[in-house]
Amino acid sequence: MARERGGSPRTHAATSSGGPISLTGRGGIVVMFGVGVVCGLLSHWFGVSLLAGAGFAIGCALAAFATRPADLLTLVVSPPLVFFGATFTVVVVTTIGDGSLLRGVTVGVLTALASTAPWLFFGTALVVVVCLARGLRTNVRDLREKLAGFRLFEKEENENPVRWDESPASHEPRRLHHGDVD
């Protein structure tokens, strides 16, 4: 009689049934970054400035819906940094070979950030709203409980710095440190 590997038949059927996609927090960040870079490059090449911001917002929505509930807190705090990283990457890629790279990247990043800033706010708000609907409050409550437990532990440890269980120095003569004087 051959044993079936890979767990119970129910587990195997559930994983192979092609259920909804579930990303980790890092996976959601990669989705936002990837969609932001691809749409930013397409925006530059086709001359449609709306595409860069709208693409980032679409990436934010995809990531918010596809990330597993346990990692929503990680996803909610990341859109501003991901937006900057995607914008910087697009500007570097499109500026290479156009004279001064430093000047081109500096001007390009500042211009791109200024022109697409409303999309950053929209994408961040979209992630927060979707994640609140998917259970972000539970993650925040769990984090708050962990931090409260950690603070209580530290408070107890540092509450009384005097150690009463240590006996006073014995009758041995005290050895002087090289800086001490008799």
Score class of each variant (00 low, 15 high):
P69V: 10
L101G: 06
D71W: 12
V82D: 04
F84C: 07
G55Q: 06
D71R: 02
A61Q: 09
P79M: 08
L62R: 01
T89Y: 00
V93R: 03
P79Q: 04
G85Y: 03
L101H: 03
L51Q: 01
W45S: 15
G99T: 04
R68M: 13
A66K: 08
A70C: 07
G55C: 09
V93C: 05
T67W: 04
G55P: 06
V92E: 06
G99P: 03
P80C: 05
G53C: 06
A52H: 14
V90N: 02
A66C: 13
T89G: 04
S100N: 09
S78F: 01
F46I: 05
A52K: 07
A54H: 04
F84R: 05
T89N: 12
V90G: 01
V48N: 11
A61S: 09
L81H: 08
F83P: 08
V48C: 10
I96M: 10
L101F: 01
G55Y: 03
F83I: 02
T89L: 15
A54M: 14
L73A: 07
F46W: 01
G59Y: 06
F56H: 09
L72S: 03
P69F: 05
A63E: 04
S100E: 11
F56A: 05
V92Q: 04
L101I: 02
A52L: 02
F56V: 03
L81Q: 10
L62N: 02
T89H: 00
A86P: 00
V48Q: 12
G99R: 10
A61N: 05
A61F: 11
